[in-house]
Every structure is written in C-alpha cells, then in structure tokens.
Design a protein around this nucleic acid. Structure first.
Lengths: 139, 139
DNA sequence: CCAAACTGCTTGAGGTTTGCAACTATCGAG
DNA sequence: CTCGATAGTTGCAAACCTCAAGCAGTTTGG
C-alpha cells in the first residue's frame, strides 16, 4: 500500500506550499505594496546585471507581452529602469535603481525566512533537508 | 559566513518551486481546461464531504467574494453543485458531481507526479525527504 | 415579539496577471 | 536592398484579487 517515496515526499511538499507559502507570498508582496509578479521580477533582477525583457520573461516563466506591464508598473515607481542597448536598438535592458535595490534586499530577507514547519525542525533535519535539496537541484 | 540551515533549505525549496512547480501548475490546469484556482478548488472538495462557500474560501486562502466566481465557472461545467443547506438557508453547500470526481482523480494523479529534481534523487534521499517533511508538517 | 446586529453569500468596481494575435522597429542574410 | 526573423509593445478577453456595498436569513436583546 506504500506509495513511491518520491510521490509521498512531493505530496507533502505541495501541502506545505499551498498552506503556508502561497498566503505568505501575497502577504509579503502586500507589505511592500507590490503585486506578487512585480516582487518576483524585482527579485530576478540582480544589481549590476541588467537583463533584456526577453530574458526576464524567461526567468519569470511567462509571455513577453506580460512583462511589459509588470516592468511598466515597477518603472513608474522608480524601482527599475529601461535602458536601450547600444548594440541592438530593439532590446531594452532592465536594471534596478538604487531604490529598487534597497527594496529588493528587504524582500529577499523576508522571503528567505522559513515558514514555521521548517523553522521548527530539529537542526539535524534542517541540515539534511538543505543537503537533499541541494543534491536535487544540482542534477 | 554559513547561513542558518533552515534558511538555506527554504531558499532551495523556493527555487524548486519557482522554477518547476509554478509552470507545471499552469500546464496541468491547462490540460484539463481549467484555471489554476478552479483546479485547486476541485482538489479541495472531497467527494461525500460538501463544504460551505466560507469553508472553501478558507481552504483556498482567499476572499469569499472570490469563490463565488470560481464556483460559478465550475458549476457551469457540471463539475460541482451548489446545494442549499436545510439548517441555515443562507449557506450554500458545495459538492463535487460524478463527473467532477473523475476529473478530480485525474488531476490528483498528475499533480502528485514529482518534478524531475525530486524524481531523480537517490531512493534513500527520497525516503529521508519524505520523513523530514512529515515531521515538519506534523508539528 | 420585534427591531437591531450579525452572518453567508453575491454583486460591482478597480487593478494585476495571463496567453494570443497583430503591429512597429530593428537586425541579419542573401 | 529586400526579405525574413527577432524584441518589444499594444489590444483583447478571461481569470483572479481585494474591498465595499447589498440582500436574504438568523440571532439577540429590550
């Protein structure tokens, strides 16, 4: 009757996700007066490494036409900047502003706080979990 | 220089989430011609256990006014049913139909398939991951 | 008993995200 | 230089989100 362990593990991860992560994302985004996708976009833009719209779209797993609106809203708040690339005048490079960087760091700090179920694990379990996840993502 | 292990573990889980889970949810929902929230709502409705709108809203972590629309769309496709409660005529009990049950099972089967990074883990890691997650959620 | 407060659900407005298709500007190859 | 590909934008329709207001039904307190 025992299901495959990977299915069980994944099912439990989904449960954690849905019950804790989803509400948290909305909550944290609301703290900074951002919509979730705007927050993710900001998080995807590392300071000093400008990205073309298309790359940002890929990183957000959504259509390019979508990114236009998200970037519009972030730009109108002065958190990012559109710069036209000197090499190819079709592409717009997106870069975080100083103010965007500050917000970005606050967001990263809040997002990286583990939800209670993870935080309350025994230290040994936390280390094991970290190592397993690292192995999973490395491959 | 080493961050707390729970933060690192959580950071890695977020990465898995964002890069694999998010696109998958949209993909699976699209397979069944549903929007993500409609899929989650269907998943939340166990056969034989009708739920009032308010409970469904709680389970989906969103506003009750929201659920009205989601339930409308599912009902118009014959996947669920609104029944008025005999005890309190204000509340509408939501129940899955036979057809909804069939779809629900297919969705559950697809959702429980672990993404490649988890599926490719060594069996021992999968078991360990399952056990750690179980301990996390039990508390 | 009955008016007032409350509760469960719906409706409406305003904003964000989503994909698709059409469009403009630009680039690159022949 | 012309043709086809590419980067980004715009417009559209649908879904989802919150908040505020409304309506029906229930409960409570004088």
């Amino acid at each position: 009757m025992s299901t495959a362990p990977d299915r069980e593990a994944w099912g439990l991860m989904l449960e954690l996700l849905f019950s804790h992560h989803r509400p948290r994302v909305w909550g944290i985004a609301a703290e900074f007066d951002l919509a979730p996708m705007q927050m993710f976009a900001l998080k995807a833009l590392e300071p000093g490494r400008e990205l073309p719209m298309s790359a940002l779209a890929g990183s957000l797993h959504c259509d390019a036409s979508n990114v236009t609106g998200i970037v519009d809203r972030l730009e109108s708040r002065g958190l990012i900047e559109r710069r036209s690339s000197p090499e190819d005048r079709r592409v717009k490079m997106i870069a975080v502003t100083e103010e965007g960087q500050r917000l970005r760091e606050q967001i990263a700090a809040r997002m990286s706080e583990p939800p209670p179920p993870i935080a309350k694990l025994a230290l040994q379990d936390q280390r094991e979990l970290r190592d397993i996840m690292a192995r999973a993502l490395r491959s």
